[in-house]
Write a protein that binds this DNA or RNA. Structure first.
Lengths: 212, 212
DNA sequence: CTTATACGAAACGCAATCGTATCGAATGGG
DNA sequence: CCCATTCGATACGATTGCGTTTCGTATAAG
């Protein structure tokens, strides 16, 4: 093995013997998330596949986690960040940033939403953990943005933030999976969704702009 | 076995021997869909579980379908209908009807979206079949409604139907799974989504008109 | 009654996966 | 050097699922 051992704690409480490889740990988590997406859900994540992909012995996995579910729970916990810094200039820009964060083509690891939510009835622990670490924090941020917009008059006073969140997050998440595997989401899809949602689908007949 | 044999074709082209049980066929399809939802995806659908739930021998399944994937494809095909009759009175009412159809708490069989879409990379056949029989027809209807609205002035002339569809379908689908298993989608959620999307999130003031 | 097929139940061989155990080598502190 | 622990590799028994086959029974046509 290479000489990339990490020292972790050289402090006093350090246990004797060879320290655990931190590289192995990262590789295992990474491999778990990859498999969770590429294979079809929790059932597709086999310990042996994780070990193979992480170039690690099964022993190394079972020394750290008692079973597959615990491993997946820890792997999901690493998806918590990062939530983008919000400029706070306009509600519109913040919403676009959040919509991009919900599904940036950059971080395909979030695609495991489908498999985690799909297996919610079979694996309630995982679904709860995923909601707690991944979904709720993002919802919290978006809710705050919406509230701010309502407070300062940028958004309708009678707007239901829950409905608005479902619209924005749902549109991006759904559209990304309705495509063929080869096509890709247009770069500015998040912008389009937010702008369309803000303006509304209906023609401005009643209040304002009836078009340029 | 009971005396619920179905005759199918007593006509001339009828092959000799005992005819196949139509009841068994229905039960198998039904059991397959149930498992596809309750268990976590395609991997959770085992032939033996299907046989047990349908009260049928494995032989009876393999006589009809060559393997598991073919069975699931046929099972998904039965999800194609019914698409609700559209009153055609107003675009708004039609959209509400469609939003309800995308996820009526009535037909939880559509919940397998999550498992099929999630397994899209692993089972492209199933994803394609599901899109073909279930997703596309509904999209087609909704697209027609949106086009009509654009044509007759009820909707913005510059509205992108694809974005609008993602907003409505995505909001309903997503929100339904973001809930705890015990809570249920409010009866009028589809109405809220459509009304919010039509009016737009932003307050009716000017800024939206400065866009591109 | 004969023939042909479908039925459910059970057992088969095969492969995959689980979680555990054992091995020799590697890597740390004392 | 010595000891404790981890490393990757490999083998293990147990379980599960696949797809096939066999068996005795049931249900049709002629």
């Amino acid at each position: 093995m290479a000489i990339e051992q990490t020292l972790l704690g050289s402090g006093p409480g350090r246990p004797p013997g060879r320290p655990r490889s931190e590289r192995a740990e990262r590789a295992i988590i990474e491999a778990t998330l990859d498999l969770l997406i590429q294979e079809a859900g929790v059932a597709g994540v086999t310990i042996e596949a994780v070990a193979a992909r992480a170039a690690v012995g099964k022993t190394t996995i079972y020394r750290r986690w008692p079973n597959k579910e615990a491993l997946i729970i820890d792997a999901l916990a690493t998806l918590k960040g990062p939530i983008p810094d919000l400029a706070g200039e306009s509600v519109r820009d913040d919403l676009v940033a959040l919509a991009r964060a919900v599904r940036p083509s950059q971080d395909p690891r979030l695609d495991c939403v489908w498999n985690i939510f799909g297996g919610a009835t079979k694996h309630p622990h995982l679904a709860r953990q995923f909601k707690q670490t991944v979904v709720l924090p993002r919802q919290e941020v978006m809710r705050a943005v919406l509230r701010r917009g309502i407070a300062n008059g940028e958004l309708r006073p009678d707007l239901d933030p829950e409905v608005a969140m479902a619209i924005i997050a749902g549109a991006v998440t759904m559209r990304a999976r309705s495509l063929s595997p080869d096509e890709d989401l247009p770069e500015d899809f998040a912008d389009q969704v937010v702008d369309t949602a803000l303006r509304g689908l209906s023609s401005g007949s009643a209040p304002s702009c009836t078009g340029p």
